[in-house]
Deep mutational scan, measured.
Amino acid sequence: MLEGKVKWSNSEKGFGFIEVEGQDDVFVHFSAIQGEGFKTLEEGQAVSFEIVEGNRGPQAANVTKEA
């Protein structure tokens, strides 16, 4: 699992980007967020995730919010 911080997200469009130190930003779709209820990410929020190869390149999977 990698750790990063949410660079920005748009809940209306359903995606955002995660900033990882020393690496390119990672695309995240809201379907990759683990948990119940409305899935949102806040700018600056710490997250853990895996990287998978998506249709348009690397993207985050199994995203969990850190406490």
Results as ranks from 00 to 15, higher is better:
residue 45 Q to R: 06
residue 8 W to F: 10
residue 3 E to T: 15
residue 63 V to A: 02
residue 58 P to Y: 08
residue 11 S to H: 14
residue 60 A to G: 03
residue 25 D to N: 06
residue 64 T to P: 01
residue 37 G to I: 07
residue 5 K to Q: 06
residue 7 K to S: 04
residue 44 G to E: 02
residue 19 E to L: 10
residue 32 A to N: 09
residue 29 H to V: 03
residue 54 G to N: 06
residue 30 F to K: 08
residue 33 I to A: 05
residue 20 V to A: 04
residue 40 T to A: 09
residue 2 L to M: 11
residue 58 P to N: 07
residue 15 F to L: 03
residue 41 L to R: 00
residue 8 W to K: 04
residue 11 S to D: 08
residue 52 V to A: 06
residue 67 A to Q: 12
residue 29 H to Y: 07
residue 47 V to H: 02
residue 39 K to V: 09
residue 50 E to K: 08
residue 8 W to D: 02
residue 5 K to G: 00
residue 8 W to G: 01
residue 64 T to G: 05
residue 52 V to F: 08
residue 50 E to L: 10
residue 3 E to F: 15
residue 8 W to H: 05
residue 11 S to F: 12
residue 65 K to L: 15
residue 63 V to M: 03
residue 40 T to Y: 12
residue 39 K to C: 12
residue 42 E to Q: 12
residue 55 N to I: 14
residue 37 G to A: 08
residue 54 G to E: 04
residue 47 V to R: 00
residue 19 E to I: 08
residue 16 G to W: 15
residue 2 L to N: 06
residue 16 G to L: 04
residue 53 E to L: 14
residue 9 S to C: 15
residue 39 K to T: 09
residue 19 E to D: 06
residue 33 I to Q: 03
residue 66 E to L: 15
residue 62 N to L: 07
residue 61 A to H: 10
residue 5 K to S: 05
residue 16 G to M: 05
residue 21 E to C: 14
residue 43 E to C: 15
residue 37 G to F: 08
residue 21 E to F: 12
residue 67 A to E: 12
residue 34 Q to D: 08
residue 31 S to G: 09
residue 43 E to D: 08
residue 14 G to A: 09
residue 40 T to V: 12
residue 65 K to R: 11
residue 49 F to H: 01
residue 47 V to Y: 03
residue 58 P to T: 07
residue 11 S to G: 09
residue 10 N to K: 05
residue 14 G to I: 06
residue 51 I to H: 01
residue 53 E to R: 08
residue 63 V to E: 02
residue 61 A to I: 13
residue 22 G to E: 05
residue 39 K to A: 10
residue 13 K to G: 08
residue 43 E to H: 12
residue 28 V to G: 04
residue 32 A to I: 03
residue 54 G to A: 06
residue 23 Q to E: 08
residue 18 I to P: 01
residue 12 E to T: 12
residue 16 G to Y: 10
residue 17 F to V: 04
residue 50 E to N: 11
residue 38 F to A: 13
residue 40 T to H: 11
residue 6 V to E: 02
residue 19 E to M: 12
residue 9 S to H: 11
residue 10 N to C: 14
residue 38 F to G: 10
residue 9 S to Q: 08
residue 63 V to S: 02
residue 6 V to Y: 00
residue 21 E to Y: 12
residue 7 K to G: 04
residue 22 G to F: 05
residue 55 N to D: 12
residue 4 G to M: 02
residue 16 G to V: 04
residue 15 F to S: 01
residue 42 E to P: 08
residue 29 H to F: 06
residue 33 I to M: 09
residue 7 K to L: 02
residue 54 G to D: 06
residue 30 F to M: 07
residue 50 E to I: 14
residue 17 F to W: 08
residue 60 A to H: 02
residue 50 E to H: 10
residue 35 G to M: 08
residue 53 E to I: 14
residue 57 G to S: 04
residue 18 I to G: 01
residue 44 G to H: 05
residue 37 G to S: 09
residue 3 E to W: 14
residue 22 G to A: 05
residue 23 Q to F: 13
residue 8 W to T: 03
residue 54 G to M: 07
residue 49 F to T: 02
residue 46 A to H: 14
residue 51 I to E: 02
residue 18 I to T: 01
residue 51 I to M: 07
residue 29 H to P: 07
residue 17 F to M: 06
residue 43 E to N: 13
residue 48 S to N: 09
residue 24 D to C: 14
residue 23 Q to V: 07
residue 16 G to T: 02
residue 59 Q to M: 12
residue 12 E to V: 13
residue 4 G to F: 01
residue 2 L to C: 10
residue 52 V to D: 03
residue 60 A to S: 02
residue 9 S to E: 04
residue 6 V to K: 00
residue 5 K to L: 08
residue 56 R to I: 07
residue 17 F to P: 01
residue 64 T to K: 14
residue 24 D to H: 10
residue 41 L to D: 01
residue 58 P to R: 14
residue 47 V to A: 02
residue 31 S to R: 02
residue 24 D to F: 10
residue 42 E to T: 12
residue 62 N to E: 04
residue 2 L to F: 13
residue 9 S to Y: 15
residue 34 Q to Y: 08
residue 63 V to F: 00
residue 24 D to R: 13
residue 65 K to V: 15
residue 66 E to R: 15
residue 33 I to D: 04
residue 15 F to E: 00
residue 33 I to N: 03
residue 36 E to T: 11
residue 23 Q to M: 15
